[in-house]
Design a binder for these strands. Structure first.
Length: 571
DNA sequence: GCCGTTTTCGGCCCGACTGTTTTCAGTCG
């Protein structure tokens, strides 16, 4: 059983955590973290790179980590990790999940009090035992208890689909209540990561204290963690941590760059700055005491002789090198999208008629909209049989005679059955403008079976698009076991378009596979899977995913004008 | 542990806020 990049990355993240707790050299810890991150974002399998003897060509992977990768691939185990695990009880690592508890505190309470679980930590805090330790006091004890409560109530990360609208709402509230010059959500929200740890909002104002006062008195604020002149952190009623930073207007660009991250991207940038004899902070780019940039992000990147880098790329996955060589992709934008190819109507489980959806699409400036209702295999979604599908197609044809400025395409979202066959006759499918095939059942099949099942469906000439290819539901259900690499190869070979399902729960194909697919010449469609008019606006989440996957307009079929799109479907 | 058009050794990004402190360590991003 081959070991995946994600699995190898997990091993190195684990090593980093364990070394961190043991008080190892922090740079060594970071080296493992960095290796994990690099491996996670590779677009080809580490195993292949290993077989070709190119492991140490990967930046951040040296002799020692390369040997560990080799051991993992050859034996499926890593003795170094096993030794480390044996020296620290698993529960001690769990303590790091408590906000306010870092490696030093975790190790301290384990050594002095034998604490090795969150439950034991809670008990010790309640009994006032933590305050007896050096460096810890009653206040810390209280914060740890609060942290444990928060962890239990809300878990760790929030999907972008929740965090982004909420951040936008907070921005509106702050604008109404405080003297604000500029305001912008930063952090992982601005990078459009699929899940968000906390919400960062950057503000410029000449009266920072008033902004902070307005912020902490918002009704959604449940608890204030820290409040200063430049930085304030709160916990909201929903349990999301939210930070507001206020800076002077002439620092806005530097601060926005800094607070957008990612941490890895910033570290890399600062290293470049250092090599040039410069220093970057959230206040600007400095040569000695002289500030040479900071008002805009363009200025900051410009000071390092780099073009501005779109936030979605800022993960230190090669974007800085690409920028330096003038090879940044020209990322797809929402305005490039000419139509949505995956929408549902009252004919299955949607909430609106075909006409209502079509008019809404026209309103958005689209040239076309694809109707792709469910088929009979999906009983819960009122899936249609052959006869109903053809009736819907007739209705669409009539509608097209009546409507102007928008073309409705007759499609379907056909189920890929357990054995890889489709649940609708191919003669019927052939009469439609396009066909999306998706998995909606038997999610728990083993990897080989699931992969083969999906490939078999893509093999059918009548299938144009593979719907939500990995089936994940962010925060709710893992992707089904499927070999992304094989999926992409087969999509390219069979000319099947990979969907980037924009529904915020899905964002599927995930960004990393988008990028891997682009590398192999795959084509994509960004679709919302809308079940209502409102949901057509979710397209922005799909575009974000595509952008994080380095995709350009040319990679996306629904950026094509209608006639060219239809040519692709007919093929 | 990684890395090198100054280096194979000695660096490795930078700052805010808090709590427990008489000057700073820990955590966070």
């Amino acid at each position: 059983m081959p070991i995946s990049n994600a699995q190898i990355a997990q091993v190195f993240y684990r090593i980093a955590e364990l070394l961190d707790i043991k008080g190892e050299n922090p740079f060594r810890v970071r080296a493992y973290e960095k290796a994990a991150m690099v491996i996670e974002s590779l677009t080809e399998p580490v195993e292949k790179i290993y077989r070709e003897g190119r492991l140490t060509e990967i930046p951040g992977i040296g002799k020692s980590i390369a040997e560990k990768i080799a051991e993992l691939i050859e034996t499926g185990r890593l003795s170094y990790l096993e030794e480390l695990e044996a020296s620290i009880p698993a529960g001690v690592v769990e303590l790091l999940k408590i906000p306010e508890v870092g490696p030093k505190t975790a190790w301290l309470v384990y050594e002095k009090l034998g604490i090795k679980s969150i439950e034991e930590m809670e008990k010790a805090a309640r009994e006032g035992k933590l305050r007896q330790l050096p460096g810890l006091g009653p206040k810390t004890e209280e914060n740890i208890l609060k942290g444990i409560e928060r962890l239990r109530r809300f878990g760790e990360r929030v999907p972008l689909g929740i965090a982004l609208p909420f951040a936008r709402q907070v921005v509106e509230w702050l604008k109404e209540r405080a003297p604000i010059d500029k305001i912008e959500p930063a952090g992982s929200i601005r990078r459009r990561k699929e899940t968000i740890g906390d919400i960062d909002i950057l503000v410029t104002s000449t009266q920072p204290l008033e902004v902070m006062d307005a912020f902490v008195s918002l009704p959604v604020v449940r608890e204030v963690i820290a409040k200063g002149e430049t930085k304030t952190s709160v916990i909201t009623e929903m349990g999301i941590q939210m930070d507001v930073r206020v800076v002077e207007p002439d620092c806005f660009g530097a601060a926005l760059q800094y607070f957008t991250g990612s941490k890895e991207h910033n570290i890399h940038l600062r290293k470049i700055a250092q090599d040039m004899g410069l220093k970057i902070s959230e206040y600007g780019v400095f040569r000695g005491d002289e500030k040479i940039a900071g008002r805009t992000e363009e200025e900051v990147y410009g000071a390092l002789n780099l073009p501005w880098i779109p936030p979605e790329l800022r993960e230190d996955r090669g974007e800085i090198e690409a920028a330096a060589e003038g090879k940044l992709p020209k990322l797809v934008e929402i305005k490039d999208i000419r139509g949505d190819l995956h929408t549902h109507t009252k004919h299955s489980d949607g909430n609106f008629t075909i006409k209502e959806m079509a008019l809404a699409a026209k309103e958005m400036g689209y040239e076309y909209i694809g109707i792709a209702d469910h088929t009979k295999g999906l009983g819960v979604a009122a899936g249609q049989d052959e006869e109903e599908i053809l009736k819907e197609k007739e209705e669409i044809e009539k509608l097209n005679e009546e409507l102007e400025g928008i073309r409705v395409l007759a499609g379907v979202e056909v189920n890929i059955r357990m054995d890889g066959t489709l649940d609708i006759d191919e003669e019927v499918l052939e009469q439609l403008d396009f066909v999306i095939a998706s998995v909606h059942s038997a999610f728990k099949q083993p990897k080989e079976v699931m992969t083969e099942r999906i490939c078999k469906a893509m093999e059918r000439e009548v299938v144009d698009i593979l719907g939500h290819p990995t089936g994940r539901l962010i925060g709710k259900r893992d992707a089904y076991e499927v070999d992304g690499e094989i999926l992409i190869d087969e999509a390219v070979r069979t000319g099947t378009i990979l969907e980037i399902n924009a529904f915020p729960d899905r964002m599927d194909l995930p960004d990393i596979l988008c990028r891997a697919g682009k590398g192999k010449g795959a084509k994509f469609a960004i679709n919302t899977d809308a079940h209502s008019i409102d949901q057509l606006n979710l397209i922005e989440y799909g575009v974000s995913t595509a952008r994080r996957g380095w995709l350009e307009k040319e990679d996306i079929v629904n950026c094509l004008p209608l006639d060219e799109l239809l040519k692709i479907f007919r093929k």
